[in-house]
Structure formats: C-alpha cells, structure tokens
C-alpha cells in the first residue's frame, strides 16, 4: 500500500501565533505530501519494500537497492521526519515528567538544554533538523543535514525541529532564532516524555 499523508490531529491554526496556519497548511499539504509522492514513486518497482514504514526504510539504508537509496534517504527521511515533527507539537503543555528528570540529569537543567538545542538549531548551515535523541539510554542534542534522520544512525528521536527555511520563512523570514524561541512554546512534553520512556 502506498504511503499516505497522515492527519495532523489538530487544526492548522492550533499552534498560532508560534507557527501560523498558512505555514502549517503549506508545510503539511505541499512539502510533506511531495516527500510521500517521491517516496512512493521510488518504491513503485520494489514490491518487497512497499509494506515497510518510512522509519523501517531509513533505519536500514544499506539494505535499500543503490538505485533508489538516495531517494529513499531524502524522501523517506522527509516523510518520517515530518510525521514525527507533527506528533510532538502542542501548545501549553507543561514541562514535567520523566523527560524533565532526564534533561536535568543530562544537561544540568532545562535552561542549559534549551541553550544547547537552540544553538545547534541556529548554527545548522543550510537545510536540516535539530534533535534531542536517546542514544544508549542517554539524552543528547544533535543536528542532521537535509532530511537525514537520527534513526539511520541508531538513535531514537524524542524532539525534532525542522529548520528548513520552508518551516518558518512566511512568518519569520531570515530570523531563525525567533522561530526556535517560539518552538519552545509548542513542544508537547507529554508526548516527548512517552517517547523518552519507551526509548531509554
């Protein structure tokens, strides 16, 4: 069965004013949809791969035939990353739970984590993602270029922030640091905590 665009589970304006409705709509219906279309096109003649999820495909890139490996990496990654991103966004969720304890023990506290994550996201040159991942039970911040995923190097994401310009240009233009600051108002810490508990 071909990959299909997942529902957001909330309205396009649900993250206002931090991410505007227009950006959410274009990001979801145009950018995310294009990754899915390109992934499906690449898998058309590879029936053995069609039942796999995008995460499964990018977890084992070395097993993907070379002729479609780059497309699967880019567009399978784009599909997986965006699906993940939508799932961790929600306004007004309190920072608490196991993830708060984990961040305190790995980074010293929330502010130190926020600094490290924000700097990583701001400094990433070009298009890509900033992540909070679990690696062998430990939390760490990392960046990936383009649509590369921590999953491809055996790490489990619990937070991901899209810093492709399409994620913020309509509202923030060149001001990526303002977008990163806004992101901290829309992290669904309940969901992040669940992901952390499952991964650690």
């Amino acid at each position: 069965m071909p990959h299909t665009l997942p529902e957001l589970g909330y309205a396009y304006d649900a993250l206002e004013p931090f991410i505007d409705a227009k950006t959410m709509e274009i990001h979801h219906t145009k950018h995310h949809q294009a990754y899915i279309n390109n992934l499906n096109a690449a898998l058309e003649n590879h029936t053995d791969l069609q039942a796999k999820t995008a995460e499964e495909l990018i977890s084992n890139l070395e097993t993907i035939p070379e002729s479609i490996r780059t497309v699967v990496r880019n567009h399978g990654g784009g599909h997986a990353n965006h699906s993940f991103f939508w799932s961790i966004l929600k306004k007004d969720v309190k920072f608490s739970g196991d993830i708060a304890d984990g961040i305190a023990s790995s980074f010293g506290g929330f502010e130190q984590f926020k600094d490290t994550f924000s700097t990583t996201a701001a400094k990433l040159f070009g298009s890509g993602w900033a992540w909070l991942v679990v690696d062998n039970g430990k939390l760490e911040v990392m960046a990936t270029p383009n649509q590369d995923s921590p999953v491809s190097v055996g790490k489990t994401p619990v937070i991901g922030l899209d810093v492709w310009e399409h994620a913020y240009y309509l509202k923030y233009q060149n001001r990526r640091p303002e977008y990163i600051e806004a992101f901290f108002h829309i992290i669904n810490w309940e969901k992040v905590s669940e992901l952390y508990i499952a991964a650690k």
């Binding site: 274009i26 310009e165 399409h166 240009y169 309509l170 060149n174």
Partner: peptide, 12 residues
C-alpha cells in the same frame, strides 16, 4: 535554490 530565494514569491 535556497528556499529563501523564492519562498516569499513562490512558496514550495
């Protein structure tokens, strides 16, 4: 072809 070159005028 950085997105900032065309996003205001052409979006995606």
């Amino acid at each position: 072809v950085w997105e900032h070159a065309y996003y205001i005028d052409y979006r995606n």
